[in-house]
Amino acid sequence: DFYYSGTPSFQKHFGKFADKYGFQGAFAGMMYSFKTREEFWGYLATFLHTTQHAPLRKPYRDLDTILNGKDFHILTTNQDTQFMRLYPEDKVSEIQGDHRFFQCSKSCCDEIYDALQPVDAMYQAMGDGTSIPTELIPHCPHCGAELFPWVRGYGNFLQGKKYEEQYQKISKYILENEQKKILFIELGVGRMTPMFIQEPFWNLTLSLPDAYYISVNAEYNFLPEQIEDKGIAILGNIASVLEDVRLEINK
Rank of each mutant, 00 (worst) to 15 (best):
residue 75 L to M: 14
residue 29 G to I: 03
residue 50 T to H: 08
residue 251 K to S: 11
residue 9 S to E: 11
residue 8 P to V: 05
residue 2 F to C: 07
residue 200 P to E: 14
residue 93 S to N: 02
residue 20 K to C: 13
residue 232 I to L: 14
residue 86 L to V: 05
residue 97 G to I: 03
residue 174 I to Y: 08
residue 161 K to P: 05
residue 125 A to F: 00
residue 232 I to W: 01
residue 117 Q to I: 13
residue 89 E to H: 13
residue 137 I to V: 14
residue 127 G to M: 07
residue 154 Y to R: 01
residue 171 S to G: 15
residue 186 E to Y: 07
residue 166 Q to I: 11
residue 71 D to W: 07
residue 195 M to D: 08
residue 85 R to G: 08
residue 89 E to F: 13
residue 71 D to K: 13
residue 180 K to N: 09
residue 89 E to A: 13
residue 165 E to Y: 14
residue 224 P to G: 03
residue 70 K to A: 07
residue 129 G to A: 12
residue 135 E to T: 07
residue 198 Q to M: 14
residue 206 L to M: 08
residue 77 T to A: 06
residue 136 L to T: 12
residue 185 I to A: 04
residue 38 E to H: 06
residue 31 M to Y: 05
residue 114 D to S: 12
residue 146 E to G: 09
residue 136 L to M: 10
residue 17 F to S: 01
residue 158 L to W: 02
residue 243 E to N: 00
residue 21 Y to N: 07
residue 131 S to P: 04
residue 136 L to F: 05
residue 91 K to I: 08
residue 226 Q to V: 15
residue 94 E to G: 01
residue 210 D to V: 06
residue 175 L to D: 12
residue 29 G to V: 04
residue 162 K to E: 05
residue 193 T to C: 12
residue 147 L to D: 00
residue 244 D to P: 00
residue 133 P to V: 07
residue 197 I to W: 06
residue 46 T to P: 02
residue 80 D to N: 12
residue 173 Y to L: 09
residue 239 A to R: 03
residue 167 Y to N: 12
residue 22 G to E: 11
residue 43 Y to Q: 02
residue 153 G to E: 02
